[in-house]
């Protein structure tokens, strides 16, 4: 089987290997994205975020099962933090999704953040493109909602699902600032526990502060582990999709996202270009030392590095 046939057949091992290759910026995988780019865009990307332990994985599992009933193909990218000390990670989201593993219409991939600042793996974007090329209709990206990752997920997802739980206490204050703007749908998970109504009211009250919204994010109480109201939640997600499509906002958002992604890609390449040269000649170390010894200053040092690429394009 050649690669085209494998893609057409949805050969999972090929899909998995391409994602790995893309994680290391392998040219062969990049060429495949290039030559199949025209066939992408069919996948609808749902970002699932929220505090640690909120039930994001369990909920993703249940939502995927709901979509499987509609004969959709589901890709799931589950991201967990990489340890900044060892560079290793324990990726445990799959524990909640094990019985999806064998479904021929499901592909699950775990990723470490691998030191990318945004809480999302640098390769996440590429992995969604691969899954898109392999014909997955819906792609879930699960990421722990801590600070920057929330901003990151907006850049990749069409709909952002914010998973909250009762009794977050002060946490709701802490995350409120960032999340109210980025969430398209709120799920109050673990509604089988006390306090879900209170959390719902709190979220609704915060939404009330934003009066001039064309679209008001719905707040849906669910219980992932008891499989309650998952269908209602899915309806609300699909309603958001329909809203984006009807108002042409989907396209506008994707243009915005592609611009951000493009910038990020250029930034990464430029960075490695500069650093390759600076590191190769120990320039970085030397300049750092010189700054400390006051033989130069940080601005002059920076200009020295920038001149490196200006002069050798």
């Amino acid at each position: 089987m050649n690669i085209e046939e494998k893609i057409k057949k949805g050969h999972k091992r090929t899909c998995a290997r391409l994602i790995t290759m893309l994680e290391s910026n392998d040219n062969e995988a990049i060429e495949i994205i290039k030559s199949h780019y025209k066939s992408t865009g069919g996948a609808y990307v749902i970002g699932v975020t929220g505090p640690p332990g909120a039930g994001k994985s369990t909920l993703t599992d249940k939502l995927a099962k709901e979509l499987l009933k509609q004969n959709k193909k589901i890709g799931i990218i589950a991201i967990d933090p990489t340890s900044p000390f060892s560079g290793g990670a324990i990726l445990g989201d799959r524990i909640r999704m094990n019985d999806l593993s064998l479904n021929k219409n499901v592909f699950i991939r775990s990723m470490g953040t691998r030191g990318s600042l945004g809480g999302m793996s640098n390769a996440t974007w590429g992995a969604t493109k691969i899954l898109d090329i392999f014909g997955y209709d819906y792609i879930f990206i699960e990421t722990v909602g801590v600070g920057q990752s929330e901003v990151d997920i907006v850049k990749t997802a069409d709909t952002v699902l914010m998973v909250m739980v009762p009794n977050l206490g002060d946490d709701i204050q802490a995350i409120k600032a960032g999340i109210m703007e980025i969430a398209d749908v709120f799920a109050i998970n673990k509604s089988d526990l006390d306090g879900a109504d209170k959390t719902k009211v709190e979220v609704e009250m915060n939404l009330d502060l934003n009066e001039d919204m064309d679209y008001r994010p719905p707040v849906v109480k669910v219980s992932a582990s008891k499989n309650e109201d998952i269908d209602v939640l899915l309806e609300n997600i699909l309603a958001h999709r329909k809203y984006l499509e009807d108002t042409k906002q989907l396209k506008e958002n994707r243009i915005r996202n592609n611009k951000l992604e493009l910038l990020k890609m250029v930034e990464e390449d430029l960075m490695s270009l500069i650093l390759d040269r600076a590191v190769k000649d120990d320039l970085l170390d030397k300049l750092a030392k010189d700054i400390t010894l006051k033989e130069t200053d940080p601005y002059t040092a920076k200009e020295t590095i920038i001149r490196l690429i200006r002069n050798n394009p």
């Binding site: 290793g88 990670a89 799959r94």
Partner: peptide
């Protein structure tokens, strides 16, 4: 993990 590997644990 502490040795720098990415470990997928399935339970």
């Amino acid at each position: 993990r502490d040795a720098g590997m990415e470990v997928i644990y399935t339970g």
